[in-house]
Simulated scan of single mutants.
Amino acid sequence: MLTTDDIIKDGHPTLRKVASEVKLPLSNEDKETLEKMMEYVQNSQDPEVSAKYKLRPGIGLAAPQINISKRMIAIHVHDEKGTLHSYSLVNPKIISHSVEKSYLTTGEGCLSVDENIEGFVPRYARITVKATSITGEELKLRLKGLVAVVFQHEIDHLNGIMFYDHINKQNPSTPPEDATPIER
């Protein structure tokens, strides 16, 4: 089982690397890694399990965050309507996105960043992602709102980008222009 101690922190060189494509079909080792990543995200959202193992709550995790430089992400999040979006994916790629932007009114956080970084993170309001599931199925996902933000955050990790790289350095607390706020 992964714990908070397995998550590398901001400043670790792996977080700034572009992760490698995952070879298909998935090896047992890669499947196990993805399963452990999903288990962490799910357990971190369960108050009892989270308290018992001192897990920091998260809604997404990318393999580079556990010092594995491979293109794998686990996302377990409820959208604004309460629908659960739970994915263990390899080689996710944004193949199209809206011109329209959005941002979380609370800003973004990250399991690899311990301090609270103030500022709005502009994201695409809608994205289409192609990826392969843990079972080897090719997926094409059309996402919007919070779920689209989470996917963009995790895919950024695969490209060595941290969420705060997107924050306007001059005016971090100014909402991005023409962007839709997402309450969380």
Results as ranks from 00 to 15, higher is better:
L2D: 00
D5P: 00
I8D: 01
G11K: 12
H12Y: 02
L15W: 03
V18C: 11
V22G: 08
V22T: 02
L24N: 08
P25E: 05
P25I: 00
E29D: 13
D30S: 10
E32R: 13
E32V: 06
E32S: 15
L34K: 03
L34P: 02
E35R: 11
E35M: 08
Q42M: 15
Q42N: 15
Q42Y: 07
S44D: 00
S44W: 04
S44N: 02
Q45L: 14
D46G: 04
P47K: 03
I59T: 12
G60W: 03
G60K: 04
A62G: 12
Q65Y: 03
S69G: 13
K70Q: 09
I73M: 00
A74Q: 03
A74G: 06
V77D: 03
L84P: 09
Y87T: 08
S88E: 10
L89E: 01
L89G: 08
N91H: 07
P92K: 04
K93A: 14
K93Q: 15
V99T: 13
K101G: 14
E108P: 10
E108K: 09
E108S: 10
C110V: 06
N116P: 02
N116D: 15
I117H: 10
E118N: 12
G119A: 09
V121A: 14
V121W: 02
V121H: 02
R126T: 13
T128M: 11
A131Q: 05
T132Q: 09
S133Q: 06
I134P: 06
I134N: 11
I134W: 09
T135A: 08
L139W: 11
L139H: 06
K140N: 13
K140T: 15
L141Y: 08
K144N: 15
A148Y: 03
H153S: 11
I155P: 01
I155Q: 07
I155E: 08
D156Q: 05
H157F: 14
L158M: 12
L158H: 04
L158V: 08
M162Y: 01
N168F: 05
K169H: 09
Q170L: 14
N171S: 15
N171D: 15
N171L: 10
I182C: 11
